[in-house]
Amino acid sequence: MSKFQILILILLTMSCSLDPVGETDATKVTVLAVLSPDYVRQTIMLVEGTNIFDVDGLYPSELDHPVQGARMVVRSAKQTVEFTEVSPGLYQDAETQLQVVSGESYFLEVQEADGPELFARTTVPGAFRIIAPEDSATFVIESEVAFSWQRSSGAGTYVLGRNLFECEKEFFGRNFGFYGSFDKTQTKIIAWINIFCNSSLQAQTFKVLAYDSSLAAYLYSVDSNGAPLQRSNIDGGLGVFGSMVSDSLTIVVTSQ
């Protein structure tokens, strides 16, 4: 074999790999936090994920692990509250309750034990009321109900849903049933009143949630293929530091 043929063989062999080449120093630490006046305690989760080219062979449950021992502080114009780690990766305002108020801005600072600092900000959307239907109104099952609500200043997305009953929770695996999410300019929707199990012919509690723009972007962005893609507002990290306000009403559902 001539030297030229050997060189070609080496080149072809070297070029057989189908793996990408490169490095990244992108952070993998993620903050998951939603502040709301509805919550007695505010909870912030801190986890670290896995880089995209290191996930081969891992189960989804192995993709992230909690980040422990971080110092976490939330500041507002009136308060500075240090969050306490109540379980691995889970931090709460356990010692001093953080007062979350509509229209107020809150600043998050996270300092990991061996990592960079993370910063974020959220402004709680303004309070609003559901205008229609009237509280305790009665509707026949399978009828359409027009919901409308006031505009909430600073809202990025509205969500309509209702608290699920026990038989529904078992089926859907969650507490809250979503009817849909709507652009911030939309304050009316017609929903079809349905049930999924016989025991639901009773009062149903509907909620309209107003998410701030950061939370909306995190939950409802999609990539070029239409797959969910979480857009982050964490400076120096990933995830979301968002806020939410809501209003609710109860309607009575009858069989006819």
Binding site: L32, Y39, I52, P60, D64, L219
Partner: peptide, 14 residues
């Protein structure tokens, strides 16, 4: 991109 376990926000509890 960084991969994480899938999580759902329960708006009732945060």
């Amino acid at each position: 991109d960084v991969f994480f376990s899938s999580r759902y926000l329960d708006p009732l509890t945060g």
